[in-house]
Simulated assay, not measured.
Amino acid sequence: MITCVVDYVIDPAKIEDFERFARRWMDLVERHGGIHHGYFLPAEGASDEARALFSFESLAAYEEYRTLFGTDPDFVEADRIRDETGCVLRYRRTFMRPLLPDSD
């Protein structure tokens, strides 16, 4: 399993737009074979940071999902929310391997 961790710098004045963007991506990840662990939004402290975590069976499975970016209408529409509202100022994607309580 591989987990993608996405760190966002968001516009705090556009949190509702970011939530709409996030809900679309949670659906897309789940629909295309991933497990979305949720978006984590500002509550206390920095108000412009958010994080998303989602996993795929393998890097190959993630890369297959990525082939839909820019071509599948649902993916294009989800990105349009981000682009038209300006809710995301920048983001960074990192891949991690989870160590879970039941794993050897």
Rank of each mutant, 00 (worst) to 15 (best):
M1T: 01
I2S: 05
I2G: 03
T3K: 11
T3I: 06
T3V: 13
C4Q: 11
C4M: 04
C4N: 11
V5I: 12
V6W: 00
V9I: 15
I10Q: 04
D11L: 07
D11N: 14
K14C: 05
I15A: 02
D17F: 03
F18Q: 03
F18K: 14
E19F: 01
R20M: 03
F21I: 04
R24W: 03
M26C: 11
D27E: 14
L28M: 05
V29Y: 00
V29I: 06
V29A: 00
E30S: 12
E30K: 14
H32A: 06
G33F: 05
G33P: 13
I35Q: 13
I35A: 11
H37A: 09
H37F: 05
G38R: 02
G38Y: 00
G38W: 02
Y39R: 00
F40R: 12
L41Q: 11
E44H: 12
G45D: 15
A46Y: 11
A46L: 05
S47P: 04
D48I: 08
D48Q: 15
D48W: 15
E49V: 14
E49N: 08
A50E: 14
R51G: 08
A52I: 04
L53F: 09
F54D: 10
F54G: 04
E57W: 12
E57G: 06
E57C: 05
L59S: 13
L59A: 15
A60C: 10
A61N: 10
Y62L: 13
Y65Q: 02
T67D: 07
T67I: 08
T67A: 10
L68T: 06
G70W: 07
T71Y: 07
D72F: 05
D74G: 06
F75V: 03
E77S: 11
A78V: 02
D79R: 07
R80K: 09
I81P: 07
R82I: 01
E84T: 12
E84G: 00
T85E: 08
T85M: 09
G86P: 02
G86I: 09
C87L: 00
Y91T: 12
R92G: 10
R92E: 09
R93C: 05
R93H: 09
R93I: 12
R93Y: 00
F95C: 11
F95W: 14
L99C: 07
L100D: 12
P101K: 07
P101Q: 03
P101S: 06
D102C: 00
D102R: 00
D102K: 00
S103Y: 02
S103W: 01
S103I: 06
D104Q: 11
D104W: 08
D104L: 05
